[in-house]
């Protein structure tokens, strides 16, 4: 009797496990089918950072917005595809693309050779320059920044330029977010920041006691949309859509909302 009970319990477990396993399989294949269907129906998941005003930001409600997000939406509309836009931390944004968590990155990403080894880029949708920001009238020009403490966001073209060109002449501090770098500029830990020019332009509007130092630095920095390397169709779709919104005035409309000058 006892043995029977034990055997039946074991069998019951085995059966349950088997059913569960079958269920899993069924679910998986269902999911797979669903995914395929969605892909053909044209849903694209796009990642952005959400911490880079005015290009991509998250409002109090957690809603993503900004220049990048609006461009992404305009492109999706042009491509006649439904888009889901998700937020992803900058550090993990390329690994996430490789892991197929999303299909494209529209997050003001500079097209660089290092990144090109990992991802494919569309044609640029705007051009970026770098410029130092510091307390108004604190430094006459960039030469005066030698020996000072200068900050930048880690994993950006600014941090790379800073390390390569000022690494031996100044103390370089790297931050996880641009906001943290601004915070340390304000509280006096940093003498200056090297930043992308348009977000800095935006930040300076609200922080009148700070100003640009010296001339803008042209590093031939073009901003593109990153997709997985094997996704050639998507690159072409984005490029065509980009051309379309450039010629039909949609791009200009969005540009004007954020900047009084053309940033393409």
């Amino acid at each position: 009797m006892k043995r029977n009970t034990i055997i039946s319990i074991i069998m019951a477990f085995g059966f349950a496990a088997g059913v569960a396993a079958c269920g899993d399989d069924a679910k998986k294949s269902e999911e797979k089918m669903e995914k395929k269907e969605v892909a053909t129906a044209g849903e694209i998941t796009i990642a952005t950072e959400g911490a880079y005003p005015p290009f991509n930001t998250k409002d109090a409600a957690g809603e993503l917005g900004g220049f990048d997000v609006e461009i992404a939406k305009a492109l999706c509309e042009e491509m006649k595809k439904t888009c889901k836009i998700v937020a992803q931390d900058w550090d993990g944004i390329i690994p996430g693309l490789e892991a197929k968590k999303y299909d494209a990155i529209v997050a003001s990403m500079s097209i660089t050779d290092e990144r090109k080894q990992k991802v494919a880029f569309t044609n640029p949708y705007y051009s970026n320059y770098l410029q130092f920001v510091a307390k108004k009238d604190a430094f006459a020009d960039t030469a005066a920044l030698e020996g000072k403490t200068i900050g930048a966001q880690r994993s950006t073209v600014a941090s790379k330029w800073l390390e390569d060109n000022m690494g031996s002449k100044a103390t370089v501090k790297l931050y996880d977010t641009q906001t943290a770098a601004y915070e340390d500029l304000k509280n006096g830990r940093l003498d200056a920041i090297l930043s992308d020019i348009y977000p800095a332009h935006d930040w300076l509007k609200e922080n009148g006691e700070y100003a640009f130092v010296g001339e803008k630095i042209d590093i031939d920095d073009k901003i593109g949309i990153a997709v997985r390397k094997d996704d050639k169709e998507l690159v072409k779709a984005f490029n065509d859509a980009l051309e379309a919104i450039r010629s039909n005035g949609k791009y200009e409309e969005i540009n004007k909302k954020y900047f009084p000058f053309d940033i393409f």
């Binding site: 550090d91 390329i94 290092e114 990144r115 080894q117 880690r154 994993s155 941090s159 790297l174």
Partner: peptide, 12 residues
Amino acid sequence: MGQSRTIFSRNY
């Protein structure tokens, strides 16, 4: 960790 992350930001 800080160095590793900085290096990662260069070569991914």
